[in-house]
Simulated assay, not measured.
Amino acid sequence: MATIAENIDIIHAKAAEMDEIVIQFRAAKAEMDAAEAEIRQLRPVSEPSRAYQERLAFVALDAMGRPSLDGLPLIADLAVSAWGAPVDEVTE
């Protein structure tokens, strides 16, 4: 069994790890938000959104905050399911 001081050291170290994860999450979310906004501008207005489109970052946040969701599909898999593979743009 760890001492109180050892447990406090663990808490401090893990808190620093969580800070780094939060920074990475915010950066990834900002990039996803920008890409999704650009897709909305580029795609035809008549094309409807599909499941998980424009909400993947919130699904990821939910998965981090709720350990009971362990075992659900990975966010990367949901992204492929929602958006499909990248499509080559047609240039005229």
Score class of each variant (00 low, 15 high):
residue 1 M to V: 11
residue 2 A to T: 06
residue 5 A to K: 14
residue 5 A to Y: 08
residue 6 E to C: 00
residue 6 E to L: 03
residue 6 E to K: 02
residue 7 N to T: 15
residue 8 I to M: 13
residue 8 I to S: 07
residue 9 D to F: 13
residue 9 D to L: 05
residue 10 I to V: 14
residue 10 I to A: 14
residue 11 I to G: 05
residue 11 I to H: 08
residue 12 H to T: 02
residue 13 A to C: 00
residue 15 A to W: 05
residue 15 A to I: 03
residue 16 A to Q: 12
residue 16 A to L: 08
residue 17 E to H: 05
residue 18 M to S: 12
residue 18 M to E: 11
residue 20 E to T: 08
residue 20 E to Q: 05
residue 21 I to S: 15
residue 21 I to Y: 09
residue 22 V to S: 07
residue 23 I to G: 01
residue 26 R to W: 12
residue 26 R to I: 07
residue 26 R to H: 11
residue 26 R to P: 00
residue 27 A to C: 03
residue 27 A to Y: 00
residue 28 A to D: 14
residue 29 K to C: 07
residue 29 K to Y: 11
residue 31 E to K: 04
residue 32 M to C: 06
residue 33 D to Q: 09
residue 33 D to V: 06
residue 39 I to L: 11
residue 40 R to D: 07
residue 41 Q to C: 09
residue 41 Q to T: 03
residue 43 R to A: 04
residue 43 R to V: 08
residue 44 P to M: 06
residue 44 P to E: 13
residue 45 V to T: 02
residue 46 S to W: 08
residue 47 E to S: 01
residue 47 E to N: 12
residue 47 E to P: 07
residue 48 P to H: 11
residue 48 P to D: 09
residue 48 P to A: 05
residue 48 P to L: 14
residue 48 P to V: 05
residue 50 R to D: 06
residue 50 R to Q: 14
residue 52 Y to L: 00
residue 52 Y to P: 00
residue 52 Y to S: 02
residue 53 Q to M: 13
residue 54 E to L: 10
residue 55 R to A: 14
residue 55 R to P: 00
residue 56 L to D: 01
residue 56 L to M: 03
residue 57 A to C: 10
residue 60 A to K: 09
residue 60 A to C: 04
residue 61 L to K: 03
residue 61 L to G: 01
residue 62 D to Y: 01
residue 63 A to L: 14
residue 63 A to H: 13
residue 64 M to T: 11
residue 65 G to F: 11
residue 65 G to N: 03
residue 66 R to L: 06
residue 66 R to K: 15
residue 67 P to F: 08
residue 67 P to C: 15
residue 68 S to L: 15
residue 69 L to A: 01
residue 69 L to T: 09
residue 69 L to V: 02
residue 71 G to P: 01
residue 73 P to L: 11
residue 73 P to R: 08
residue 73 P to G: 09
residue 75 I to G: 00
residue 76 A to Q: 13
residue 77 D to R: 00
residue 77 D to L: 01
residue 77 D to V: 00
residue 78 L to P: 02
residue 78 L to F: 03
residue 79 A to I: 14
residue 79 A to V: 05
residue 79 A to K: 10
residue 80 V to D: 01
residue 83 W to M: 00
residue 84 G to T: 12
residue 85 A to C: 08
residue 85 A to W: 07
residue 86 P to T: 06
residue 86 P to E: 02
residue 86 P to C: 05
residue 87 V to N: 10
residue 87 V to E: 03
residue 87 V to D: 10
residue 89 E to M: 15
residue 89 E to V: 15
residue 89 E to S: 15
residue 90 V to Y: 14
residue 90 V to H: 10
